[in-house]
Every structure is written in C-alpha cells, then in structure tokens.
C-alpha cells in the first residue's frame, strides 16, 4: 500500500503519462482533422514511425531538437503526400493504402536503422526543460507537468488552437462539410479535393511530430517498430472524441497513464509482468468502445472518395 501511493510512484506516473501521452495527443489531433474531412487515415501508424525515424536522425545529425521536429514533420508529410495523392486525388481504397504505408514505413525504417545505427545505437542527450515558475513547484504533479520540454506546452496549446479553428473559422466549417456532405461543399464553390488534401497533409505533419517526440524526447533513441500501435490508438482517440480536440487531450492523458503504468509500478516496488501491463491501453480502448459504443461518432462520408456528380 505504502509502495503504491508513495510520492515516487505518483511522480513517475504523472511524468510517464505526459511522456507517453504527448505523441498520442499530437497524432490524435491530426487524425481528428483528417477524419473530420472524411479520410480515415490507417497509415498514421506508419507516418508516426517515419516521423520518429527522420526526427531522430535530423536531431542526431544537427544536435537540435527543433530541427529534429522539423525533420519529423517532414517524414510524416512525405507519407501523407503519397496518401493524399493516392486516396484523395485518385480515390483509391483508403484502408489498403493505409496498410501499405504502415508496412512500408515499418520496413524502410527498420532497414535504415540496421544500416546506420545497429552497431552503435546512438542516444540523444537528455533534453533541457523549461520549468514554468510557481506551477512547477506544486508537489507531485508540478515536476511531471510543468517542468517539461517546451514542445509539451506547444502541443497542449495546439489543442486550443484547433478548438478555435473548428468553431470559429471557415477552415473548420469546410473540413466538417468535406466529411459530412462533400457535395454541399463542392456546391459552395470550395474544392473537396483541396480541403481533404490539406487535412491529410496536416495529419501527416502532426503524426510525424508525435513520432519525433516519441523518439527524440520520450526515448532519446530510435528503435524499429517503436510506435507499437500508438497510431492505431490515436485513431480510436479521434473516433471517440467526436470532433472535440479537448477530448483528444483527456483521452491521450488517460492512455498515457495506462502506458506508463509499467515503469511507475516498478518504481513503486510492484512487479507486474510487462505483457499484462501492455494489454492495459488496448483493453481500455475496448472497454471504452463497449461502454460508449453508440456514442462514437464519425462523419457521414468517412472513408468514401468524393467523385463529383456521383452518389
């Protein structure tokens, strides 16, 4: 009992939840935009993984995390460009292409990792944090939440930027229309293809950033297949959030907690097999889906290519 509720356990849990939750948050926000616009992006797992690789590689070469983030975003964007070209422009099956992109990213990053790093396994140095005055002094949650790398704060700010975009801007309205009634958007004189293309590119960028956070800051190292299903969890987050970016944030933190429980339990002195704890996030998704099944909402035209004049 004392071990479970000790400060060390709680501090490690909060810190781990943020570290594991931020990649989910970024990717989940990205997926939300793409789902809103009617594109189900199964390739997001691959986009995260490629972003994790390119982000790590750029940061490793340049020594700058910010350049690394740029690299990660570029990695995600490359796959998103392919996805936009094949699925939005040509209207190919979104799920087949999504699986292909994930498989391709799995293979390519594992190959490149083997060729470049498999003998040295380089690590990035620990990151500098930006403590927020006063707030970071709060016991237990202070150091976990308010003494992090600045990118964490930016990711959380992004949630509220998206809230504003969805509620207050034409872009938000166009995205919604592209997913729910593409023909109406077309009739209003806005290109569905362009709207969806931009949405997919945004998703790729966010997924790449999430992956880059995972490798550069979360782990400090790139490992093949390191995303381990995080992209798929991001899809579920976006699905359950029903278009609310703040819900993605809560969901990401919740899954972050369950992902970080292994380490925290070990710090607290409880030894649970890793495999059991690895099941937690996925079991949680299933539980949430069983309970809130009817409440998961998706746009009407999700997954369907738009062809003008065709019903």
């Amino acid at each position: 009992m004392s071990g479970l509720l000790s400060d060390a356990f709680l501090i490690s849990l909060v810190a781990g939840a943020i570290a594991a939750g931020i990649p989910l948050l970024l990717a989940g926000l990205g997926e939300q935009v793409s789902e809103k616009a009617g594109v189900l992006n199964i390739g997001i797992e691959g986009m995260m993984l490629l972003g994790a690789y390119t982000g790590f590689y750029v940061a490793f070469l340049s020594g700058s995390l910010w350049l690394g983030f740029l690299g990660g975003a570029a990695g995600g964007l490359i796959l998103a460009l392919l996805m936009a070209l094949l699925c939005v422009r040509l209207g190919l099956n979104q799920i087949v292409i999504g699986i292909a992109l994930t498989l391709g990213a799995d293979g390519i990053t594992a190959l490149l990792h083997h060729v470049q790093f498999s003998r040295t396994y380089p690590r990035l140095p620990a990151v500098d944090t930006l403590p927020i005055p006063l707030l970071s002094q709060i016991p237990i949650i202070g150091p976990g939440i308010f003494d992090r790398h600045p990118s964490v704060y930016l990711a959380i700010i992004a949630v509220f930027v998206l809230v504003w975009v969805f509620r207050r801007t034409n872009v938000g309205l166009n995205l919604q229309a592209a997913g729910d009634k593409p023909a109406a958007l077309d009739a209003a004189g806005v290109s569905v293809t362009t709207t969806r293309t931009l949405a997919v590119l945004f998703t790729g960028m966010m997924a790449g950033l999430g992956g880059a956070y995972m490798s550069m800051i979360g782990a400090g190292i790139f490992i093949p297949f390191m995303t381990g299903g995080a992209g798929f969890i991001a899809i579920v987050l976006a699905m359950l959030a029903r278009g609310h970016p703040t819900w993605v944030l809560y969901g990401a933190l919740l899954f972050g907690v369950s992902l970080s429980l292994t380490t925290a339990l070990q710090v607290g002195g409880v030894n649970v097999p890793t495999d059991v704890v690895q099941m937690l996030p996925f079991a949680m998704v299933m539980l949430v889906l069983v309970i809130f099944a009817r409440r998961s909402a998706l746009p009407a035209a999700l997954g369907l290519p738009y062809v003008r004049g065709q019903r």
Partner: peptide
C-alpha cells in the same frame, strides 16, 4: 547483411502499385 524487413517494403510497394494498376 540486411534485416529481413525488406520483404515488408516489397509487400507495401506491391500494394501501392496494385491499387494504381486497378485505378
């Protein structure tokens, strides 16, 4: 001296080209 993941890349490429050919 490569890991066996090259086959994954081939499968991914086949999928993409398959979708394109169909289109």
């Amino acid at each position: 001296d490569l890991p066996n993941y090259f086959v994954l890349v081939l499968v991914a490429l086949i999928l993409i080209f398959m979708a394109l050919t169909e289109w």
